[in-house]
Amino acid sequence: MPALLTLCRQGKILKTLDFLFQRFVKAILVVLGVVILNFVLIHMAPGDPASVLAGEAGAGDAKFIAQLRAQFGLDQPLYWQLWTYLKGVLTGDLGYSYRNQVPVMTLILDRLPATLLLTGCAFVFSLVLGILLGVIAAYRRGSIADSVVMTSALVFYATPLFWIALMSVLVFSLHLDWLPPFDMESIGANYTGWARVADIAHHLVLPTVTLGLFFTAVYTRLTRASMLEVMALDFVKTARAKGVPKAQIIRRHVLRNAILPVFTFASMQAGQLVGGAVLTETVFAWPGIGRLMFDALLQRDYPVLLGVFLVTAAVVVLVNLITDLLYRFVDPRIEAAS
């Protein structure tokens, strides 16, 4: 209780409330903007879901198409369609998939866990490995280890994701037969409990590494640069003057300061990770929203596309919000500055 009182007195709670309030309002505006922009862009693109559906049904006549358009509300003016859609979004209704005959929300909720699992694993993998390699490269600057790390980072940075994906399937699945090449679980195995967890983990390895390598390269380079920058700062010299051994200086003084920009960058890249998942999920037949989006795109399934965009945008905004909050804990100066 006394601690709480002190906090109140310093206005800390009010400041944090202010911060949360402002960020929340901004987050909602951003998501709303994304929804409207996507809606307009999609309807400006050539092609019409009604004619695609009609074409696939084998009935190309105008009357049937008009009937389909009326059924899905596509004959209404665009602003009216947008308004109807927004109203739906506010009540949690993301529309109905023309194609799959299922509510979009159901489709997305079905696929989201797989994507979150994959991107989450790839994110953690790349961040941990990237920071580790970056620290080693900075600590042993100019050594062979540094050269090896930085050269590999450059290679993975420059190589297209899909190529790494295909090559790793070729090597680790076809030739070595170590890892399963596609899907999230072994078909027909019906594992339960820990056996199922192990099976999914086994399936996760290739897509995670593939998706994560590019970002590992980015974090490695960023961490190294940031470490070297911090190592030149005055307080590092102070630590040396105190007689602190080098390894401890790196751990306690340099890394903690150097890691801040890496975190900022990581939160910005969380969105790109979801984008990268489209490719990875397609190559590895991963049942996530990346593949859902890819299929919806080919089928002009507007509601599904819009739903996927909305959810990914919300995830990105949420990740950024969490990062900003975390930042206030990691760096005590942020709160004072805001």
Partner: peptide
């Protein structure tokens, strides 16, 4: 420089 000689995060 007392401003930069102390670790800002400690």
């Amino acid at each position: 420089e007392p401003l930069s000689a102390l670790n800002p995060l400690m």
